Amino acid sequence: MRRFITTTQSPEAEFGFARAVIQDPFVFLSCVYGYDPESMTMPEDVTQQTCNCWDSIAATLQGAESALEEIVKARICVTDPAYGEPVLDACARRMAEILPASTLMVVSGLMRPEMKVGIEVTAMWSLAREW
């Protein structure tokens, strides 16, 4: 079974991608950027961008019948090595109890210059579990 999670307020919608794809037993999230989920504005601060990423990821996973606790892999892109520690500190506050596998990459840039961090995750689909 394949199911798509889409939104009209994201870069994915503009370019024909789903925010997430549920393919039993996983939920694959497209890279999420640090836009404020309410105003769709991008804060300047990389820590706030990271917190916004996690808020959007949590909301998307909830809509996909999963949760942050189900994340098994996180891929994090930053546009400057100096952002690494503040981003990882913000990630640690959200993921310290979950401990997914993770990769941090420094990239030369993301699609828009105001984007300093992007996070992509893979999670287990809660409904796939039979405990």
Rank of each mutant, 00 (worst) to 15 (best):
8 T>L: 14
8 T>W: 15
8 T>D: 07
9 Q>A: 12
10 S>G: 04
10 S>T: 03
10 S>C: 10
10 S>N: 05
11 P>Y: 12
11 P>R: 14
12 E>K: 08
12 E>D: 10
13 A>V: 02
13 A>Q: 10
14 E>P: 11
14 E>T: 12
14 E>Y: 15
15 F>N: 03
15 F>E: 13
15 F>M: 10
15 F>D: 12
16 G>K: 12
16 G>D: 03
16 G>A: 08
16 G>H: 00
16 G>I: 01
16 G>N: 03
17 F>H: 03
17 F>L: 01
18 A>L: 03
19 R>W: 11
19 R>H: 13
19 R>K: 15
20 A>S: 01
20 A>Y: 00
21 V>Q: 06
21 V>I: 02
21 V>D: 01
22 I>Q: 06
22 I>L: 08
22 I>V: 07
23 Q>G: 02
23 Q>H: 00
23 Q>Y: 07
23 Q>K: 05
24 D>K: 15
24 D>Q: 11
25 P>Y: 07
26 F>K: 02
26 F>S: 00
27 V>R: 01
27 V>Q: 05
27 V>M: 12
27 V>I: 11
27 V>C: 04
28 F>K: 00
28 F>H: 07
28 F>G: 01
28 F>W: 15
29 L>Q: 03
29 L>C: 01
29 L>H: 09
29 L>K: 14
29 L>G: 06
30 S>F: 07
30 S>D: 05
30 S>I: 08
30 S>K: 03
31 C>D: 10
31 C>G: 12
32 V>L: 08
32 V>T: 03
33 Y>S: 10
33 Y>K: 14
33 Y>M: 05
35 Y>L: 11
35 Y>S: 14
35 Y>P: 01
35 Y>M: 06
35 Y>V: 07
35 Y>W: 06
36 D>I: 09
36 D>F: 04
36 D>S: 15
36 D>C: 08
36 D>T: 02
37 P>Q: 09
37 P>E: 04
37 P>T: 03
37 P>V: 10
37 P>A: 11
38 E>T: 09
38 E>V: 02
38 E>A: 06
38 E>M: 06
38 E>C: 00
39 S>E: 07
39 S>T: 03
39 S>H: 05
40 M>D: 10
40 M>G: 00
41 T>Y: 13
41 T>S: 15
41 T>W: 15
42 M>N: 03
42 M>A: 08
43 P>T: 02
43 P>M: 05
43 P>N: 13
43 P>E: 02
44 E>V: 04
44 E>F: 15
45 D>S: 04
46 V>H: 01
47 T>H: 07
47 T>C: 09
47 T>A: 14
47 T>G: 14
47 T>K: 15
47 T>I: 07
48 Q>A: 06
48 Q>I: 08
48 Q>K: 14
48 Q>M: 08
49 Q>D: 10
49 Q>K: 12
49 Q>C: 10
49 Q>M: 10
50 T>N: 13
50 T>M: 13
50 T>L: 08
50 T>A: 13
51 C>S: 05
51 C>Q: 09
51 C>Y: 15
52 N>S: 04
52 N>A: 07
52 N>H: 04
52 N>Y: 02
52 N>D: 09
53 C>L: 08
54 W>A: 11
54 W>M: 12
55 D>T: 02
55 D>Y: 04
55 D>A: 03
55 D>M: 04
56 S>C: 10
56 S>T: 15
56 S>G: 14
57 I>K: 00
57 I>V: 00
58 A>F: 14
58 A>Y: 09
59 A>G: 11
59 A>D: 13
59 A>T: 12
59 A>V: 05
60 T>P: 09
60 T>A: 08
